Amino acid sequence: MNSVLITGANRGLGLALAQQFSACGYKLYLVVRTESSKIDLLKELPDANVLICDVTTNKYEVLLNEWLSDISLDVIINNAGSGTKAPTLESTKSEFLRKEFETNCIGVLATVKGALVALKRKHNSLVINISSRRGSLTMQSELAAKGSGCSYSYRISKAAQNMLTLCLADDLEDLNIRVVAIHPGRLLTKMASTDADMTPELSAKKLLAMVKCNKLKTRDYISLDTGELPW
């Protein structure tokens, strides 16, 4: 049986991904922050394995490694994310950048390190980092985000995550572990952009289809609604 680890799996895209991968027969390993989230998940997905831990805590990497001690993972989806509505220099604060960087970049690193042994047990395993079009330095330089309302902290942390994706791809390629960045589309969620037009359910279906067809190559940076993105 194939297996998938999903962080931030209790709502939005994370929950939709868990539902879709479960329906496809994947064994689920889900990471959430609270006991109540775990209880709610198990009501809907009773066969899931759920770890309660915040990806930003110092103990997370060790706990994850112990939790997966005898597990083989085909796919990791680093979905846990954080954002702040502070799109201007005047409104942004250093604390916002620290919070987003901890979740969107360091949390991803901790997940990969904590799950690395489990990934190595499978051939051609896959790490999917849920990124954003707003993490593209090329698009930022072409003014794509100007006036969009997207926060400094979100754009900066996703750009950092993209660099992490490329660093991981360099290191893990020789281990037959692919690492990709995926913009899930303009999702209709709580933190939706003004031009949002895709449900988390549709986004999850699109991503699952790409995984099943083995279309994702290491170092890919892809939008699920428009195709390849520039780094």
Score class of each variant (00 low, 15 high):
130 I>M: 12
124 N>F: 11
174 D>W: 06
120 K>E: 14
113 K>G: 09
180 V>K: 03
136 S>P: 07
43 K>E: 07
94 S>P: 09
19 Q>S: 03
153 S>V: 00
46 P>G: 06
129 N>A: 05
167 C>P: 04
36 S>N: 07
21 F>P: 01
42 L>A: 02
152 Y>S: 10
27 K>L: 09
32 V>H: 08
78 N>W: 05
73 L>P: 04
72 S>H: 12
138 T>G: 02
178 R>Q: 12
73 L>F: 08
29 Y>H: 10
187 L>H: 02
190 K>F: 11
49 N>W: 07
133 R>N: 11
80 A>I: 10
41 L>I: 04
47 D>C: 01
114 G>S: 04
169 A>L: 10
177 I>F: 00
196 A>T: 09
31 V>Q: 01
27 K>E: 14
188 L>W: 08
7 T>Y: 06
81 G>L: 05
94 S>I: 13
194 T>N: 15
103 T>K: 09
117 V>L: 15
184 P>C: 06
199 T>F: 02
110 A>P: 01
3 S>W: 08
127 V>Y: 01
87 P>T: 11
15 L>S: 01
158 K>F: 07
184 P>Y: 07
118 A>D: 07
124 N>Y: 10
40 D>Y: 05
170 D>F: 03
219 R>N: 10
13 L>G: 05
175 L>V: 08
21 F>H: 06
173 E>D: 15
46 P>K: 10
73 L>A: 10
21 F>Y: 09
58 N>P: 06
107 G>F: 08
28 L>Y: 05
216 L>Y: 04
229 L>V: 03
173 E>L: 14
44 E>A: 14
38 K>Y: 00
9 A>N: 11
54 D>Y: 12
231 W>M: 03
211 V>Q: 00
204 A>N: 01
65 N>T: 09
103 T>F: 03
16 A>N: 03
136 S>I: 03
65 N>R: 05
212 K>A: 12
184 P>T: 06
115 A>Y: 06
28 L>I: 02
130 I>L: 09
145 A>Q: 13
89 L>S: 15
145 A>L: 06
38 K>A: 04
219 R>K: 13
103 T>V: 15
156 I>V: 15
10 N>M: 00
64 L>G: 06
24 C>Q: 15
55 V>F: 09
106 I>Q: 10
208 L>P: 03
127 V>R: 03
194 T>E: 15
10 N>F: 00
50 V>Q: 05
212 K>I: 04
181 A>Q: 07
223 S>D: 15
200 P>F: 13
12 G>S: 09
93 K>F: 10
105 C>S: 11
60 Y>P: 04
24 C>W: 07
162 N>Y: 02
45 L>Y: 05
94 S>R: 12
124 N>L: 07
129 N>W: 05
228 E>A: 13
180 V>F: 00
